[in-house]
Write a protein that binds this DNA or RNA. Structure first.
Lengths: 216, 216
DNA sequence: AGAATAGTGTCTCTCAGACATTATTTG
DNA sequence: CAAATAATGTCTGAGAGACACTATTCT
């Protein structure tokens, strides 16, 4: 009942990225054992919540305008130094061609290495993952993890990694194409096999997807 | 950029209820025109966020343990008296047999009377409504607006009011029954027509529904 | 008997999932 | 021409939506 306790409003970001055939998250490594932590920042009253998150990320990596979504606000999370935190948690997606940077205070951790995470962080991570998987199904948010143009095979692989299950090639293509959110570009050759057509998502589909966001 | 501005964390509740064949929300009526406001409370560091919301509601009405769900956290909402608010918004559902109370600072307003609400409140309300409708589809949350036992017709009517569209009787019953979340009880007679079977939801289905909550 | 509401079953069409072969490029 | 990856179409089963009549109670 001590109303004298101060309540510190902060934001937290769960930033996902595809690296080395695995879904990874950005964390601050910690001195001892597995006390990793997600990037966190005090909320500055000067700008919007999303703005705060973008600012927080800009300090850690050289990418701007990242896909963001509010996840949940936790009020009874960590009690540290006798102070309570009110954490507004976001999740964010970083295209994999922008994930190669080095900043000595953050590293990538595969989400499947579950014992890298303390209990509380794991809970948040699981929830973020559920949301990501869920959105993937109805909103095709997978693009946000890829460069501007990509092949259907790459996109399918992205889905498979996130969902952690194999998908049927023909059914996948049918679904994606008839969702009418991507459009073809030109060709590209890799060293191996038949060249794949490259797609990008339709610029007007972005707005459409935003509008489809039931959970902004 | 003035970090000196203080940021006041608060909670807000959008409480829905079924009254007079309409979906209504609880608001503080305001002196002039249409400046209604949703119930709001400062966050006390002593208890959880949900606890804070329940406390806030207990001050306004004689009902306990109400269905709650976190909606969204707004950081750039109202700027009042030079202070910014950080509003964690919840939505809540009140069974219609508990909605008859009088408290001089709150009233019920039908959600369809859209011009009763100022712009910002309307935005929040719309979002809450979308979420409610959405959850109704996959989680059968409609029960939370009815007394403990109810007929299938009453349940269907509830759905129709919330979704604001007529539903087919046979399809509705099929869907609800095969979802396996309600069980029959005994009969009751109304003055009119054939008596309807009364149902309640399966107590073990409550846990199931909670588990199905993708968005806690 | 008439008014009022409860309760019940079938058909059709669309969509999701399983599934194997051909096409194009490189070395 | 062998290896590697891209691209393509059909069938089947399940579930959603449209639809009309019979059953039980009350006055």
């Amino acid at each position: 009942m001590s109303t004298t306790e101060s309540l510190i409003p902060e934001i937290k970001v769960i930033l996902f990225c595809l690296k080395e055939e695995a879904l990874q998250v950005l964390v601050h490594p910690s001195d001892s054992q597995n006390r990793v932590d997600f990037p966190t920042g005090l909320i500055e009253a000067g700008s919007s919540l999303e703005g705060n998150v973008q600012n927080c990320l800009r300090k850690l990596l050289p990418a701007d305008e990242i896909y963001l979504e509010q996840l949940f606000t936790y009020g009874d999370g960590l009690v540290e130094q006798g102070q309570r935190h009110l954490s507004v948690v976001y999740f964010a997606l970083l295209p994999n061609n922008k994930s190669d940077f080095t900043h000595h205070h953050v590293i990538w951790k595969p989400v499947l290495e579950r014992n890298s995470f303390p209990e509380y962080e794991l809970e948040i991570l699981d929830y973020a993952l559920r949301r990501l998987r869920y959105k993937l199904e109805y909103t095709a948010v997978g693009f946000e993890l890829l460069p501007e143009t990509f092949s259907l095979s790459e996109l399918q692989r992205t889905y498979e990694i996130i969902l952690d299950e194999p998908l049927d090639k023909r059914n996948f293509r049918r679904r994606i194409l008839q969702a009418n959110i991507i459009e073809p570009t030109t060709y590209r050759k890799t060293g191996e096999g038949r060249p794949a057509a490259l797609y990008r998502y339709r610029s007007d589909a972005v707005a459409e997807i935003k509008a489809r966001r039931l959970f902004p």
